[in-house]
Amino acid sequence: MADLIKLRARLKDGVTEVKALMNHPMETGRRKNDVDEVIPAHFIQLVTVTLNGKPVLEAQWGTGISKNPYLTMRLRTAKLGDRIGLAWHDNKGGSNSAETLVEAG
């Protein structure tokens, strides 16, 4: 699926670990295709992670993040059942978001 985000939040010993895997080509704009044409840049520029709607992480990214970006972050303020959200926006105006609940780790 082109628009999939895998998002998981697990609470263990007071720390909630949020793991995300986003499907995105992360094209740098420097690669060429088989017929030597430059593939236009297409990459995520902004990722926001929220806890019950409040931002906890705002990440700005360049073209140096690997294809299908992976992210782990940690929170000490989340409780079981809290809502964790993740949204990304790319340089072409594309975006996607996902939500999950904090579960026991």
């Binding site: 720390v15 740098t28 992670v49 806890l51 409040k54 931002p55 906890v56 992480l57 705002e58 990440a59 700005q60 990214w61 360049g62 073209t63 140096g64 993040i65 690997s66 970006p69 992976y70 992210l71 782990t72 972050m73 940690r74 929170l75 000490r76 303020t77 989340a78």
Partner: peptide, 21 residues
Amino acid sequence: LIANFMFSNGADPYVITRIKM
């Protein structure tokens, strides 16, 4: 510049990600 991560509201200053070199 690969990334700039900004933390708020109780997030640990900690990340794991994968980058291109």
